[in-house]
Design a protein around this nucleic acid. Sequence first.
DNA 1: CGGTCTATTGAGCCAAATCAAGATGCGTGG
DNA 2: CCACGCATCTTGATTTGGCTCAATAGACCG
Lengths: 254, 254
Amino acid sequence: MPPSLTSAIATPRPRRLVVAGTEGCATCAICEVRANGICSALNDPELERLAQVAVKVVIPPGQIFIEEGARADEFFNVTSGTVKLFKSLPDGRRQITGFVSVGHFLGLAVSKTYAFGAEAIDQVRLCRFSRTRLDPVINEIPRLERRLLSEAANELVAAQEQMLLLGRKTARERVASFLQELLEKEYGDSPAPGAWISFPMTRADIADYLGLTVETVSRTLSGLRREGLITVRNGHEISIITPSRLHAIARGEG
Amino acid sequence: MPPSLTSAIATPRPRRLVVAGTEGCATCAICEVRANGICSALNDPELERLAQVAVKVVIPPGQIFIEEGARADEFFNVTSGTVKLFKSLPDGRRQITGFVSVGHFLGLAVSKTYAFGAEAIDQVRLCRFSRTRLDPVINEIPRLERRLLSEAANELVAAQEQMLLLGRKTARERVASFLQELLEKEYGDSPAPGAWISFPMTRADIADYLGLTVETVSRTLSGLRREGLITVRNGHEISIITPSRLHAIARGEG
DNA sequence: CGGTCTATTGAGCCAAATCAAGATGCGTGG
DNA sequence: CCACGCATCTTGATTTGGCTCAATAGACCG
């Protein structure tokens, strides 16, 4: 199981952090994603308090807005689009630790620096909070802290699941797990066989997420297609024909 | 990179949860590990409050005291010994997601059931709290919740590091990373070259932690020994001769 | 319609898994 | 004390799943 240098290096490194578009500070109360993420835990006056320290920003596709190892003095809340979180080795090998989208809170790292990087896959909208300004708000609103704790616990569970995948699953099982995850994100646990799911990440992203190479991901998807388990459209839309079969494969019972 | 069925199955499944020794409820104020873990965040009256809901238990080596998927109605705080946390696939493949020892808090899972299992490696002492009794205490003491959040964030960082290891590192880099981790747990970041570090886990545990097989772990350790980077004594004690070389290997610069 | 990414497919290779002996250590009981 | 049984660890021989290298095929875009 040699490291896949090329898959990581071949990915063109997106340009560095440049100034992202700022949309001014809208009131959170009328935020279109108020029902999602940490904001859903707050009432109107609390949201008002939060709005005072929030700045909405727009990040273009491919831009890194959290640099690994940089000083961690900002938090983010994703309001639209998809973000990839990653860690890298000095020689460029890269592991994507998660894809996150609307409602997700970023920057929980307690240390002085970010332990991971974050890059926009498609166009991403964020609420940005400076740490120094958010901290007192968190202290004021215990429910917010409780919400963060519960979010952290959920992420921990997901991380453990991913460790099982990376340490013990075959390529086929990994790809099936990934598709399964897409399905669940879209439809919860109701299978919805045959519906089209579109995803923004490239094969290289999927490979770096699953600890594989681009070629293996591509080959494995082709295999599943040939077996009639899935259909692929435009490369970035799939339809899962037999969710239960896929689920069995993902758990190693395929 | 086929799954290592044997390494997981060969490991004899320890007996099921039987009644563990109970030591009665000592006051936390005089607890020998008061300075560690969540308790260190509390003052005397708060500890007194905590003591009311805590039960000290002793777990013999090899016993599973958290069953994957079981109802999660208890929390634990490790006061001595070493615990392995793991997730398994239906066919027995196993991934150890972490080794935890004194001061560590277990059971953060927000869901109804535990997402992972926990097994004592050597003799383990725990403080056990029932969820229903601990919840109000957490609500009363915001500092406790903050402490839990910070612990969760730290675990998340460790989990991301482990995903990088499992997804992108070679066997040699994984073993070096593991040894590096042992060294850091023992001495922080001051290298202490040549000192003996003893660890309780077997080669099978290490393999299940690093996503390798027993044979590969053994061979790799032999390799590092042959190269004069480490010395091994009794199989469960090592001395790291050149910490900086090891660290370089762990980061993929070896 | 050429240029540049991104994805697919094929051929060959290699790191780690699997299979197979031994070696070492350790508790138990004669 | 040693002999036995059992588990753990090490080492060797062989196999293989996924990586690497290489070439082609789409997709997108100015």
